[in-house]
């Protein structure tokens, strides 16, 4: 939009000149610059964050190098640090959460956009948005006193039925990968539902009507038109949710059992990157320990930046299409 002062004849009568004078133009420049300073702050913060984490964890990277990421021992007492158990715990819990929440979320979104009456859909979407607002620590509390006992009760029968898979063997602790994955699923479900719903709402009506006119059932329209059309957006939603799952801290910390071990069983206690930072940073035993924890944080940061970058790429592409 044009912002240059309009060219108007110089004032003749007693009216004040309406052409912005030099003082007002200085005001413009100052205002713009002040806003630009504020805007550059977030840019600086993002850069400073990466730099700070890198420099505060230098000790770990220089002494261990990238091997830090695939070493397994974690024992602050004798300064032995390896991040693999945390990477493993984060990967398994996030994968489990995605496995549960993705079908549930996309299914709910289909119901909300294609089936539910408008008012019911609005009420349900509102409920889902509120679910996203429930603080993580409250879900953790539910997890400790409700989910963990339930999981502990379910594990023996599960192990009897599916024990031929290594996934479902072992002692029923309750706390562990399974509980953490379940609670993460609850946390990312609202994101997947809300974004998938928004994407499904953009499917053009004529496409759907065309297929209905050919005699397709509602489900066939969903499968043949809506889902293929919304595929990119749903993938974006999945990546955003995955980014959340990777970094989610409190609820996971409270139910995962906090044991830096790697086990094939979903029943066994484990540890995630975010949980080890939350548990150990405030009482870090020494410089090496602190540095190793911040190195875990840097790894987590890099991971979420990559995942979110992919999500943004998909969503930007989607926005350009419409």
């Amino acid at each position: 939009m044009g912002c240059a002062a309009p060219v108007i004849p110089p004032p003749t009568g007693r009216g004040r000149a309406r052409v912005p004078g030099p003082r007002e133009r200085a005001g413009d420049a100052f205002f713009r610059r002040a806003l630009a300073v504020a805007a550059s702050l977030i840019l600086l913060v993002a850069l400073a964050l990466a730099w700070q984490l890198a420099s505060a964890s230098r000790q770990t990277w220089t002494s261990l190098g990238p091997a830090f990421l695939w070493r397994t021992g974690w024992n602050p007492v004798d300064d032995s640090f390896g991040a693999l158990p945390f990477l493993y715990g984060t990967a398994v819990t996030s994968a489990l959460a995605m496995l549960i929440a993705l079908p549930l979320g996309v299914g709910s979104a289909i119901f909300l956009t294609e089936l539910a009456p408008r008012r019911a859909a609005q009420a349900l979407s509102f409920a889902v948005e509120l679910l996203a607002a429930v603080p993580s620590v409250i879900l953790g509390l539910m997890g400790v006193f409700l989910l963990v006992p339930a999981v502990r009760a379910v594990e023996p029968p599960l192990s009897r039925a599916l024990g031929f898979l290594p996934l479902f063997r072992g002692a029923p602790y309750g706390v562990g990968l399974l509980s953490a994955g379940l609670i993460l699923a609850v946390m990312i479900l609202p994101y997947i539902t809300a974004i998938s719903r928004e994407v499904l709402l953009t499917v053009p009506r004529p496409l759907k009507e065309g297929m209905h006119a050919l005699g397709a059932t509602r489900w066939e329209v969903v499968r043949g038109v809506c889902l293929p059309y919304a595929r990119t957006g749903i993938a974006g939603a999945a990546f955003l949710a995955l980014g959340r799952a990777l970094g989610e801290t409190m609820a996971v910390t409270m139910v995962i059992g906090n044991a830096p071990t790697i086990s094939a069983s979903l029943f066994s206690p484990a540890y995630t990157m975010s949980a080890v930072i939350a548990n150990e940073l405030a009482e870090a035993a020494g410089d090496a320990h602190l540095s190793a924890l911040i190195a875990v944080g840097l790894t987590l940061f890099a991971l979420t930046v990559v995942i979110n970058g992919l999500a943004r790429l998909l969503i930007y592409r989607l926005e350009n299409r419409s």
């Binding site: 977030i42 850069l47 964050l49 801290t249 944080g297 940061f301 979420t304 979110n308 970058g309």
Partner: peptide, 16 residues
């Protein structure tokens, strides 16, 4: 940068 910061886990922000 804002989108990146929005996706950074809160624990990492705390670390910063």
């Amino acid at each position: 940068a804002a989108d990146v910061m929005n996706g950074v886990p809160s624990i990492v922000i705390g670390l910063f």
